[in-house]
Design a binder for these strands. Structure first.
Length: 258
DNA sequence: ATGGCCTGCTGTGCAGGA
């Protein structure tokens, strides 16, 4: 089974890219973030025609997450959870589903804007709630994947210019400590389980010719529980769709299980 | 050179992203 995550920065704009990439990548499960559309505008029928069932938690303009699952792959309909239970939040950032016995969580972590800002404080509260919930989920589901746009570059090697970024939002020690807390729950960064090229990122600013200069960050991740990590045979970033016309600023990440 | 781009909105420039 291939599990992927992709921040599409508006599903309305990127719908055809997603459909093309599903065909190209042959993934079975695709976690989406930043849908930027309300549920009534989710193109469920178009994904159905492409051979995928979909579950989603959307809202107008901002945020929004989804999970697409290839036909023939078993999904427990009763297992769908939207948002972090007990964390009251109008922002749609989390959806979970149990797929072939694997707990899949598609998450769009808050950006945080700037260290010390109100949005950063919200990011910290959200991260606390997420870790509490994921810890509980892992007890219920030994096979769990937390996939999404984390808005955290875990280490300096995940940053094109660590000096320029030092202490900034997305790389600050406080954010990185939250990433470590997730790891300490027993999760493994699938990407780092394997040898990888130097300076391989998942996000590049639209400005400053950043993609061409590879001025990026690795902020999109798939973390796996121990049982799932032991079954993981590969993890890749696919930069191809970042080169397409009118691309998302994020590239998809793929983990192969089995 | 501290900006630059992209998206959605009911805007007539702004907020938000990262």
């Amino acid at each position: 089974m291939k599990i992927a995550t992709w921040n599409v920065n508006s599903l309305k704009v990127r719908q055809q890219h997603v459909i093309d990439w599903l065909e190209l990548s042959r993934v079975d499960v695709l976690c989406l973030q930043e849908l930027k559309l309300p549920d009534e505008k989710f193109p469920r029928a178009d994904f159905e025609a492409a051979g995928f069932k979909s579950w989603f938690a959307g809202q107008k303009t901002y945020n929004g997450v989804g999970i697409l699952v290839r036909d023939g792959v078993n999904v427990d309909e009763a297992s769908i959870v939207r948002n972090i239970p007990g964390f009251d939040d109008p922002q749609q950032r989390v959806i979970a589903a149990t797929v072939e016995g694997v707990r899949i969580v598609s998450a769009y972590f808050p950006n945080g804007q700037a260290v010390g800002s109100e949005k950063f404080a919200y990011k910290m509260r959200w991260l606390d709630a997420l870790a509490d919930w994921i810890g509980a989920e892992m007890k219920l589901h030994p096979k769990l994947a937390l996939a999404g746009d984390y808005n955290i570059a875990p280490e300096d090697r995940d940053v094109h210019d660590p000096k320029a970024w030092e202490g900034q939002n997305l790389v600050s020690p406080e954010e990185r400590a939250h990433f470590v807390r997730l790891v300490e729950l027993g999760l493994t960064d699938a990407f780092r389980k394997f040898e990888q090229p130097e300076k391989l990122f998942t996000w590049w600013d639209y400005r400053m010719l950043a993609f061409r200069r590879n001025a990026g960050l690795r902020i999109d991740h798939i973390l796996l529980s121990a049982e799932l990590a032991s079954l993981c045979s590969a993890c890749e970033v696919d930069k191809v769709p970042r080169k397409w016309d009118q691309p998302s600023d994020h590239a998809p990440v793929i983990a192969t299980i089995g």
